[in-house]
């Protein structure tokens, strides 16, 4: 049953990719054919945002109780958010090159997403700094919750400030100028991508919990062996009085 679901997921993702190539090229772009990057760029950005906020929710749960399970979920969610944010950055840089003529445009949305990626990097820096799982969970959860405000500001507020001018088209809200067929394709790719990402997230949570269990078992085994070694009585030959160095 699980294998069938995985095969269906793979088929859906392949189907969505094919559909994205069947949609007519977008008018109004420098390279209309390559505007299809949007079909993957936008869903990756949406998925990154969703995992980022789910990660913060898991961190809040981790601080309030059932620490290790929710910490594993928070770590996996942040890992998925980082993967999706990197995919967004890479596809955005490619889009910027082919449509606007430069790899990096100093665009506020590009810059703010890079800052989100740096905050994610700091989260993993905190995780790697602590060996003790309890302290690692506590400190990284506090950072994830604390960075919720900067992340909200960077994703939703900063690119929309009137003082900053952006190359990015405003695709959500009144100014959203996409053709309905483009929106349908974006939503189809987003649904397939989210299903794949949720599958990967669940695998990651299982892997983290198994790693922790393995570490616990290792520690228990180590402790047992140490106790066993303490109890072993080894025969030691005592020197005879005339064999001793002084005698």
């Amino acid at each position: 049953m699980r294998n069938l679901a995985n095969v269906l997921l793979l088929a859906a993702m392949a189907g969505a990719t094919v559909v994205s190539y069947l949609v007519p090229p977008a008018k109004g772009f420098q390279e209309p054919d390559l505007a299809r990057i949007i079909f993957f760029h936008l869903p990756c950005a949406f998925a990154a945002t969703a995992f980022l906020f789910y990660g913060a929710f898991a961190a809040i749960r981790s601080l309030s109780g059932d620490r290790l399970l929710w910490d594993a979920r928070a770590e996996a969610a942040h890992a998925m958010a980082a993967a999706m944010a990197i995919a967004t950055m890479l596809s955005g840089i490619l889009f910027s090159r082919v449509q606007w003529g430069a790899w990096w445009q100093n665009d506020p949305r590009q810059t703010s997403f890079l800052l989100v990626l740096l905050i994610l990097g700091a989260y993993f820096a905190i995780r790697s700094a602590f060996q003790d799982p309890e302290r690692r969970a506590r400190n990284s959860a506090a950072y994830a919750v604390g960075s919720l405000l900067p992340n909200l500001f960077l994703i939703f507020v900063f690119p929309r400030l009137p003082q900053v001018s952006t190359f990015h088209p405003m695709v959500i809200g009144k100014q959203g100028g996409f053709d309905p067929i483009y929106w349908r394709t974006i939503l189809l790719v987003f649904a397939c991508l989210m299903a794949t990402a949720v599958w990967a997230y669940r695998q990651r949570v299982r892997a983290i919990l198994l790693e922790e269990r393995l570490e616990q078992l290792d520690a228990e085994l180590d402790s047992r062996q140490r106790h066993a070694a303490d109890r072993v009585v080894r025969a030691v030959r005592l020197p005879e009085p005339d064999e001793s160095p002084g005698g």
């Binding site: 800052l115 905050i119 700091a122 960075s147």
Partner: peptide, 9 residues
């Protein structure tokens, strides 16, 4: 390392 990204906004 953790302060700089946190404070940049």
């Amino acid at each position: 390392a953790v302060s700089v990204p946190f404070l940049l906004p």
